[in-house]
């Protein structure tokens, strides 16, 4: 359960301040939730609230009852976050090492870590690349690596900020299908509107505000009209 109450977020102070999110209140309990909107509409800020990467200047964000401002650490253990550019997200030089990275400091034994890493790589078709340098993977494989590295920590909520924007159609579909099969609750920001067809709910952001909230069909129709 995600609870967002009267959240406003502003960067900077005084004259130079810029409000990027205005008075957003929403409760999300659905399993598959999409977030759409134009560039700069506030959707990236919105999803960054969900794991405490951004703390609201006003209002409150809770995930499973945990306040992101006060219990950021616990929130981040529950919330996996997948970014647009996998190159920025992959922090270790080789594939297996990067997946193992998220399991550090979790009190797991070395064999346990190894086992989980192997399983994660197998699940996402990267088993043959375990010891390869991450920079030699294709764009699609890099995004799958980023996804495996997040999922190996077994989050209960997966937040994805335009994970398919840099991918071609085939890889975008591949990522979307894998996401569809996950047991986790998923919040997905995307410009690939067709990926949201089976979702339970889609939020539309425009000019710092949450302007529409409904079924994928209604939301996408609203968004198309808004942009035309």
């Amino acid at each position: 359960m995600i609870e967002i109450e009267n959240v406003t977020h502003t960067y900077g102070h005084g004259e130079q301040s810029r409000t990027v999110l205005r008075d957003v209140s929403v409760r999300i309990s659905e399993d598959r939730v999409g977030v759409i909107g134009a560039n700069g509409s506030g959707k990236s800020t919105f999803v960054r609230l969900l794991n405490g990467l951004i703390l609201p200047t006003q209002g409150r964000v809770r995930v499973d009852g945990l306040d992101t401002a006060r219990e950021g650490r616990k929130v981040r253990q529950r919330v996996g976050f997948c970014f647009t550019d996998p190159d920025a997200q992959i922090v270790m030089p080789t594939v297996a090492e990067d997946v193992a990275f998220g399991l550090r400091r979790r009190g797991l034994s070395a064999t346990e870590i190894q086992q989980r890493v192997r399983q994660a790589l197998q699940q996402h078709g990267l088993a043959d690349h375990a010891d390869h340098p991450a920079h030699l993977l294709s764009g699609g494989q890099k995004q799958l690596l980023a996804l495996s590295a997040v999922l190996v920590t077994e989050p209960s909520l997966l937040v994805m900020d335009e994970p398919t924007t840099l991918l071609d159609l085939r890889n975008a579909r591949d990522v979307a299908e894998r996401v569809a099969g996950l047991p986790q609750q998923v919040v997905l920001v995307t410009h690939h509107l067709d990926l949201l067809a089976d979702y339970d709910r889609v939020l539309v952001f425009d000019d710092t505000r949450l302007v529409f909230d409904g079924t994928p069909a209604d939301s996408v129709a609203f968004y198309r009209k808004l942009m035309s």
Partner: peptide, 14 residues
Amino acid sequence: DRMGEALAARGVDD
């Protein structure tokens, strides 16, 4: 900047 954000999301600062 993006990498720092990703590290924070992966719990490095916690």
